[in-house]
Structures are given as structure tokens and as C-alpha cells.
Amino acid sequence: MTSSFSSELVVVREGGVRLLCREWGDRGDRGGAGADVLLLHGLAGHAGEWDATARLLRDSGHRVVAFDQRGHGGSERHPGDVSRAAYVADVVAVVEELGLDRPVLVGQSLGGSTALLTAAAHPGLPRALVLVEAGPGGAGSGVQEQIGGWLRGWPVPFPSREAAAAYLGGGKEPVGEGWARGLEQRADGLWPRFDPEVMVRSLDENATRAFWDEWAAVTCPTLAVLGQGEHGGIIGGEEYAEMVRVMPWLHGASLPGTGHDLHLERPRVLHRLIVDFLDDRSRELPRSPSCLGAHSSS
């Protein structure tokens, strides 16, 4: 599978932290019609997870950028600072260095947390916020042990991409393929492009507190997209209800039959939800009360 991104760029942060960015389309391609979009992957993920969604958004007239966040992929693997503030500062740096014009911030899982915190700390930066399987609730003290144990338990090196996809997908082919694309080939097989201990440290703040004050500070139009599969997504009904109470104009959608990696399972549906949401904003429709609706796949 080819990503069809038009260019790769590197943004260098304080301390020499390199951030590898991918861009689909540019101002000339979109003819000034679409919004800039910045896509943020989740913990232990990579920018390539967004390939399908990014191509669709580009073809809809948007300039799209995704980057391997610190500690991940082709970016700096062992940054000294993996605080929430450092992740947010990286977003601001990428926006400024690449000249993104009030981008739509789209983030999945921990990338959604980063997008939320960026929108709260820099209210003039995003024109809109899209959270994919992400919210302001705390992950809980056990999350680091749980995720750290899972990451350390990968049977690496994987002998083939097919074997990696089968292990990582949990029975869902698109999910396994998406995760497997983030691996790197070495002489003895395929290895993760991250250090599990860096990933665990990246969860320090999420494990100890929630971000409701930051959620209340978000002022831009916001869409929350949730998985609704056999085991459900990570955002429960009580958390979503509180999100709506604090932000009555929140737009929401749930995708039946999907899980936490719904951006890999249903990129076309996610693309349509984002495009329709942005079209509503461009027409300046009045904000309506949120309704968490069910959307079937296409």
C-alpha cells in the first residue's frame, strides 16, 4: 500500500528533537478552497495510520499534514521530555514551521488528548477540533501497567509483515495492517519504531489526572467520533454525557461495529463525518444540541 503523500519534511525542536512530517497536497493543490488539517496519531502509533483518511481529505480539497510525534516512528525516539506540554508544543511548532492556517486538529486516542490540550492552551490556533476515541477523562493509574505490559509482550522481531498484522490486528485486518506499517525492517525481522518505556512515560499525566478544566476552555467547534463495537470504545456513556454538559454544542457520532482504531477500520466514514462537520462550519450553521448518533459504514 502506498501512502501517496506529496512530501516529507522535518521540523527540529529545542534540544534537537526531530519531528518527521508528511504532507498531502498544498495550497496550490486545493486552490484555497479547503481548510488545513493536522492529523495526530495515538500512543505507539505513526503518521502512516492516517494515509487513507489523509488521501480522502486531500481529494476533498484540503491541505493535510501528519507527523510522527516525539518518541515515535521517524521522529526522535528518546526525547528527554514526554510531558503533555511537550507534545502540545510540538503541534504548535509544526503549525508555525509549515505555515498551516488555523488547522483543523484531528487526533486519535493520545493524539486526541494532545489536540484537546492544544485547543485549550492556544484557542486562536485551531478552527475546529475532531476527537477520535478521545476525551478529557483520566485514563487511571493502571493504564501504564496495562499498556506497558502489552507493548513489552510483543513477540518481536516479527518474521513478516503478515505475521505482525495478524498479531496486532486482533482479528481485524485493517487494524493489523495499519499497525504493521509502522514497523521497521532490520536484518532479523520487523521491530517497533518506539521504546516501550518512552511510551509508558508519555502516559504519566493521563494516569494521574483528568483534563476537564482544559475541556471547558475549548472554544472552537468540536466533533467527537466514538467506536461502538463488541467491546465498545474507551469513552463511556457517563464521560460522554459530562462532555456534552460542559460543551452543549458538541457534535458527536458513534460508528457501530468499530473499536478504538476506528480510523483504520472505517477511514471513508470518518472522512465523510469530518467533511460534513467542516461544511456545516463553513456555512456558519447555528450550533445545535449534541446528539450521539449511529452511523453505518460505507
Rank of each mutant, 00 (worst) to 15 (best):
F5I: 01
D51A: 12
V17W: 02
D26V: 04
H41E: 07
A44L: 04
L56F: 01
R55H: 00
D51E: 08
W50H: 10
A54G: 11
R63F: 03
A66P: 09
V64F: 07
R22K: 09
L56H: 05
A66F: 08
S4N: 15
G61N: 14
E8G: 11
G48Y: 02
V11S: 06
D36S: 05
S3P: 09
G48L: 11
V64P: 05
T53E: 08
G28A: 15
V12M: 07
S7N: 05
S60E: 15
S6R: 05
D36T: 10
G34A: 08
D26M: 04
G28K: 07
S60T: 15
A44F: 01
G31M: 11
E49T: 10
D29C: 11
A33Y: 06
A33P: 00
G34W: 05
R13D: 13
T2Y: 06
G32M: 11
E23N: 01
L20I: 07
V37E: 01
L57R: 11
V10C: 12
R22Q: 04
L38K: 07
R55S: 10
D36H: 04
G42C: 04
V65L: 12
G71Y: 08
R55G: 14
E23S: 10
S4W: 03
V10A: 14
W50R: 08
L56R: 15
V17I: 13
R70K: 13
L20F: 11
E49F: 14
L20C: 14
G42F: 09
D59C: 09
G45H: 03
A47P: 09
A47K: 10
V37T: 04
G45A: 12
L43H: 02
F5R: 14
A54D: 03
H62F: 04
C21A: 14
G34C: 07
